[in-house]
Each structure stands twice: as structure tokens, then as C-alpha cells.
Design a protein around this nucleic acid. Structure first.
Lengths: 216, 216
DNA sequence: CTTTGTGAAATCCTTCACAGCG
DNA sequence: CGCTGTGAAGGATTTCACAAAG
């Protein structure tokens, strides 16, 4: 049950299951069937079972999955044990939104440092976090053992920030700048580009309005 | 050449091609080969050619694709002709970031209305945009022909906002609340959940640090 | 009798490899 | 020649369908 290579598509759904499980636990539910999970997650039950089978976690036939057990199993697989320190770079509107977003904290992430290039912002705070100068970026990453960086800078600075954090030991980057980052293969990058998302939506929106009616 | 069902995976890459094309045009480049496009987009050239073949746009053998022509072709397929009015709901830090994000405007989107439930925010402005009360949401959508809504409200209000905009005629929703929205099949929803993204990153970050070295 | 876990079929996506156009 | 367009091969993912466990 060890060493199955969890498929990418499955990894992308694990946070969704986790979300459903946490909500179920809040309500006091102790077990969920694959069908319950599927309905709540908007999937079908076969997919849920296949996904969970990769984790090596076994449900109970005739009953379902134990919420507590599955929660901790998924958390473990995702590496959400303990707090993971994160640095946010670029404290504009978006960076500020991210810094005060409690969804990070509620999952296992801790905003450990904020940096910005603007001297007028350095020394001010967002919530309880102090904004530090970008010149200290490498040092902060090293000193605080940060391995995940969020880039919310203007796109023209995204690459140089990426270079700096990678050089200091970061191995995962969440990039909000609309640019392709060039990084070593050992570093994982996920880019969230808002205008890309809107353009994809636009395509499907157009389909929906061109055809009279058709849906799945 | 009409009526090929453009695959989902291809649609997701079209904005990327568009981005590369716009940058190329800025520098005065008039043609790009599939290999040039692939390098700039971080893909391989076969994929680029396959993708573009679905559009019915033909390049020139021995030369490549005409930048201007391909740009307008992709824009058309994505439905980016003319301005598309968008409403942003929930003007917290994130909503404010979105409202002032010029990436929307630079592509074919126009922020046409902002709404918030907080009476203290209603009547104030973000840039040139006035914040209106959520009670006017349906009316605004109808009057201004809005078909795309961005939801940046707290998650407990996301569903009711979705219901309201769908009822008023919106057919595409970009959802930043960490909730699954229940909508009719004719409405397209894309959810961007920041903590989901971080959790996926966490998985790969963990892999990278557990293994000594392995990358593609 | 309910629900899991999983081979096998079906579908979707990517990559290969090359014929053929400019 | 160089580069597109595309059948065909190869992978990955989803769905089916059912045997076996509780």
C-alpha cells in the first residue's frame, strides 16, 4: 500500500475530500460512504473509491469511511502535518487579501513573512504581520525554514523574486503573476491567472448562449 | 472546420497562447512557428499544432502562424470580441484586488458593477467604481446585460449570491469562495480556491524534499 | 443487503512520426 | 528544406460492473 504513485488528478481532488470531511466532522458525522462523499464533492462514487484506494486507506464494506481516520490519512498524504511556513511577496491588494485570508491558517499553513519592494510599505503591518524589505527575502526564507512562497508581485518582478526564493531553498511556488516562471525541475509551480480563468469561462459562457439549451 | 468540439484541455491553453501572441506582437514579431509558441508557453510543438488545428486556423507550412491572424482567431473562439461586462460581488480585500486588477480590462472584460452587503461600504468607490447594495444585484445584472459574475464574498453567502445572479441571467461564474456552488447545468462555474492550491503544492513540495533528487 | 475495492472497458489527452505543402 | 497538419500509438483518467467483505 506504500509507494503507489498517486495520480495527479487524484491529488488535485484530495483537498476537496478534505473539505467535505471537515464539514462532516463539524456536524458530528462519523462515517461517510463513497456515495455521500461523491454527492458533496460533485463527483461520482466510483471516482471517489478509486481515488481513496491510492491512499492505502481502507473503508469498511457495507459501512463507508470513518471521517476521523480518512481526514488524518489525507492530511498526511498532503503533508499537512504541523504548520507549514509561507512567505508572501508583493503586498498590493491581492497580497494583502492573501495575508489576511484565514483559509490558509485554518489549513496547516502559517504566514511567516511578508515582503514588498516599496519602501513606503516596509515597516507597516497587515494584521499582525510586519512587512519587510525585499532585500531580506533570502535571509527570511533561510532563517525561518520557509519552503513555500506566494508571488503576488507585478509580473515584471515575478521571475526575480522566484529566483531569489528558489536560491534560498523554497521548493514550491504559488504564482499569481500572469507569467510563466522559469525554475529548476525540482521546484513545483502552480500559477493562478485570473484573466486566464475569465477567458476560459468566456468560452463556455459563449457556448451556453449560442446554443438554445444543452447541459450535462 | 466549423463544429469541431474543442477539447477542454485545449480551451484551457488558449489563453496561454493568446498571452504569448500578444507579447510577440508588442515586439513586432509577425510570425511564430509551433516550436516558438511551444517554447514560450512551456509545452511541446506537437501539442501546439494539435490545439490550433481544432480552431480551423491554418498556419503556413515552412513558415508558421501569422501572429495577427492567430490572435484574432483565438480571441474569437474565446468570445473575447468586444467588452464583456462583469459584476464583482463581495468587496473585501480580494474583491478590491479584483476590481482594480488591470488584467481584466486589458483582456476583453469590463468591470461593470460592484456590490457588497455591508452598508458601510455601499456608496464608497474603488477606483472609479461605485459600490452598490446587494439588494440591487439582480437589477444591475439585468439592466447592464451582465453575463459573468465574480463571487468574492464569504463562503456562507456564496450560494445565495449565485442564486441571485443566475436568476438574473448570468451564465458564467468565477467563484473564489471555498464552496461548491449548486447551479443549473447551463451555467458554468470555475472555482479558484486558494487553500486548495496550497494543499496541492504541499503534496509536491513534500515529494521534492523526501526524495533526494528527481524531476522531469 | 449495503458498500468497498478493483480488473476491464471506454474515453480523453498527449506524443510520435511522417506525408505533403509552400 | 522547414514546418504544418494529422493518423496512429501510447498514456492517463474516468466509468462500468461485479465479486467479495462486513
Amino acid at each position: 500500500m506504500r509507494d503507489k504513485p498517486v495520480p495527479e488528478a487524484t491529488v488535485a481532488r484530495l483537498p476537496l475530500y478534505l473539505h467535505v470531511l471537515v464539514e462532516a466532522a463539524d456536524v458530528g458525522t462519523e462515517t461517510l460512504s463513497s456515495d455521500d462523499l461523491a454527492r458533496a464533492a460533485g463527483l461520482n462514487s466510483a471516482k471517489v473509491r478509486k481515488d481513496l484506494s491510492f491512499l492505502g486507506t481502507y473503508g469498511t464494506r457495507g459501512v463507508g469511511y470513518r471521517v476521523a481516520e480518512l481526514t488524518s490519512e489525507i492530511s498526511q498524504v498532503l503533508g499537512l502535518t504541523g504548520d507549514r511556513p509561507v512567505v508572501i511577496t508583493g503586498i498590493g491588494n491581492l497580497g494583502r487579501a492573501l495575508a489576511s485570508y484565514d483559509g490558509f491558517t485554518r489549513r496547516g499553513f502559517r504566514v511567516e513573512a511578508l515582503v514588498d519592494a516599496d519602501p513606503a510599505k516596509v515597516g507597516t503591518t497587515v494584521g499582525t504581520h510586519l512587512i519587510e524589505p525585499v532585500s531580506r527575502l533570502g535571509q527570511l526564507v533561510r532563517e525561518r525554514g520557509i519552503t513555500i512562497a506566494v508571488i503576488a508581485t507585478p509580473s515584471e518582478h515575478a521571475q526575480s523574486v522566484a529566483d531569489a526564493v528558489v536560491d534560498a531553498g523554497v521548493t514550491a511556488i504559488l504564482n499569481f503573476a500572469p507569467t510563466r516562471l522559469e525554475v529548476p525541475g525540482s521546484v513545483t509551480v502552480r500559477t493562478v491567472d485570473l484573466s486566464t480563468e475569465l477567458q476560459i469561462l468566456s468560452f463556455y459562457e459563449q457556448l451556453a448562449t449560442d446554443l438554445p439549451a444543452a447541459a450535462s
